[in-house]
Amino acid sequence: MDDLTNPAELALASHAPPTLVIIEHHVLARTCILRILRREFPEFEIVEMPTTSGLNWLSGRDVRLIALNIGDKPITDPSIEQSLPLVAESFPNAYIALLSNCDDEATATAALQRGVRGFFPTSIPVEVAIAGLRLVLAGGVYRPLPIIRHDEASRLETIPAYTDVPELSIINKGNGATTIVPDKTMVDVTPREQHVLALLELGLPNKLIAAKLNLSENTVKMHIQHILRKYSAHNRTEAVLRWSGRLLGHNGHPRS
């Protein structure tokens, strides 16, 4: 009987949609996350479980991402140090994301050093978290920068245009709000265009970009048109890829 049923089971598994896994101990939080992910990622099967002990049940599935909520635990907690290698070994092709009640730089850095591709403090807005998950699923890395003071954030608009290549990240300001700032610099790209590019990379639509940057949608469209021209890009996706270094730069050479 096993010989007859196994091929059918294998065929069924091969046609199953890719899977996202959420590991959250608390039932209410797990249920809320599950509903959000099912709404935002209808192309995926969303599986929830309280602990990593249920991962064996997913053997043979096309698991693309496993999100583990560690709560208040530090990365060095023995249970986390055991869970991360277990997840990586069980699903070597899946990306790992951590949800944490901590939003400090040391925790984020320690997570990335252990192979985590997405670090999500629970203090960030849900739309930013969803955009970050899309970035991770596309092969990118999501993490916040250290918390900065309000007076430091207010100086972002005075940053001049630069001459090197930038990487932008989301800064969590500790009150549920976020801001985008450049780590490095870019030829002929203004700070505001860098902000727009960072939000484009997260997959946000013009309306949400406008709301986050306190701009009109027409102004956002104008910035995107300027960005497309500067990168000789045919669309916003191509512009983001050139900016992030995954395509040739607008001068015809790979970005370094």
Score class of each variant (00 low, 15 high):
M49A: 05
L200E: 09
S154K: 10
N172T: 11
P125I: 11
P85D: 05
F91L: 03
L145Y: 04
T122V: 10
P144S: 11
T122W: 10
V128R: 07
P191M: 06
P74T: 12
G118Q: 03
P160N: 05
I36F: 04
L84Y: 03
N6Q: 14
I75K: 00
S232T: 06
T51D: 14
E105M: 07
S100L: 02
I46R: 05
E43W: 01
H223R: 10
T179Y: 08
R236Y: 06
E201N: 13
I66T: 11
R236P: 00
D2I: 12
D77G: 02
S169A: 13
L204Y: 06
L135K: 15
G176V: 08
R255N: 13
V187I: 14
Q82E: 15
S169M: 09
T178N: 05
E238V: 08
L68S: 01
N206F: 05
A106C: 07
L4K: 13
I159S: 02
P92L: 04
L202T: 01
E48F: 00
A177R: 14
R246A: 08
E40T: 00
V181F: 08
N172H: 13
L84C: 02
R35M: 12
F119R: 01
V126R: 13
I96A: 00
V165P: 00
E81L: 14
K221Y: 10
E105F: 13
R149M: 02
M222V: 10
R39Q: 12
V21T: 07
V47L: 08
I96P: 02
I180D: 00
H25V: 09
R64C: 04
A16M: 13
L98T: 04
A13Q: 15
W57H: 14
P50S: 11
S79P: 00
L204A: 06
V189R: 08
K221E: 14
L98N: 00
G203L: 04
T51S: 15
G174A: 08
S53G: 07
Q194V: 06
I170A: 10
G252T: 08
L68F: 14
E152I: 09
R143F: 09
P7T: 05
L208H: 12
I209F: 03
